[in-house]
């Protein structure tokens, strides 16, 4: 059990956005966090990466909570935000080097990985540029390269498919597949349901700060037999129940 979120109540202020959320992500698994705008996806992610502290409940990552040992907890996580966040004053090369320093990686090995990743995402000729001036898609690629540079046990990817070109989406999915094989887990939030349906092992459907259902696609289909075949149908029917 890589990540375990149990009975988490939390949010930005005293008013909770998340109302008693529980789910888990197992080793080598890609879990899709699905929900409407404002359902609580990003809030959940912010709790997992330690930006927010839960009011109640507990988040454990391979047996460690952030309170017990924040260093050991954070060492296991790599995060790709929805909107790329960059240090204005650092070049691409320096972003990579800083990531290596922060995660205390072996520079020689890390640079080998880095060059491979840079080549894949066609950034290898931009090492001395300020990524802050890149286009959104290219900034996102920088985030991906920085995250996959690490040997994190858990990758947290917030809405990766918007803004990336189709080639990059494909490369990212390959990268995820490859890391899964080495035992890493991925928690990914997204709206792009047909891609999610094809690649995620399991789904957590969030609605209004609560976990509506979770499970593999066949489990979801079994739980909501009238809803339809695809993740899209299931998801729409779930939100409709609520709207009615």
């Amino acid at each position: 059990m890589a990540l375990e979120v149990s009975h988490v109540v939390g949010g930005y202020s005293q008013i909770p956005v998340l109302k008693d959320i529980s789910f888990d992500v197992r080793d080598g698994e890609l879990v899709g966090l699905i929900g409407l705008n404002g359902a609580g996806k990003s809030t959940t992610i912010n709790h997992v990466i330690g930006l927010l502290t839960p009011h109640k409940g507990k988040i454990t990552l391979n047996g460690v909570t952030i309170e017990q040992d924040s260093q050991a907890y954070k060492q296991q996580i790599a995060y790709i935000p929805e909107t790329p966040v960059l240090y204005q004053e650092l070049t691409l090369r320096e972003h990579l080097e800083m990531t290596m320093m922060a995660y205390d990686l072996d520079q020689k090995v890390a640079w080998e990985t880095a060059h491979e990743l840079l080549k894949t995402f066609r950034l290898d000729n931009k090492l001395d540029w300020f990524p802050a001036n890149f286009s959104k898609g290219m900034k996102q690629k920088v985030m991906i390269v920085c995250a996959f540079l690490t040997n994190a046990k858990l990758y947290i990817i917030d809405e990766p498919f918007l803004g990336l070109d189709p080639l990059a989406v494909n490369d990212l999915l390959n990268l995820i597949e490859q890391r899964k094989k080495t035992g890493a887990s991925i928690l990914m939030s997204t709206h792009v349901l047909d891609t999610a349906q094809r690649y995620c092992d399991r789904f957590v459907l969030l609605h209004d700060g609560q976990v509506k259902t979770e499970g593999t696609l066949s489990e979801l289909q079994a739980a909501l037999p009238e809803a339809g075949e695809s993740l899209n149908d299931i998801y729409l029917s779930m939100t409709k129940v609520d709207r009615a």
């Binding site: 990466i49 924040s70 954070k74 995060y79 966040v85 960059l86 990531t99 922060a102």
Partner: peptide
């Protein structure tokens, strides 16, 4: 200066 950059919190640096 870098407090509102999320990585300043995510990086495993004490």
């Amino acid at each position: 200066q870098y407090d509102d950059i999320v990585f300043s919190h995510v990086y495993p640096v004490a």
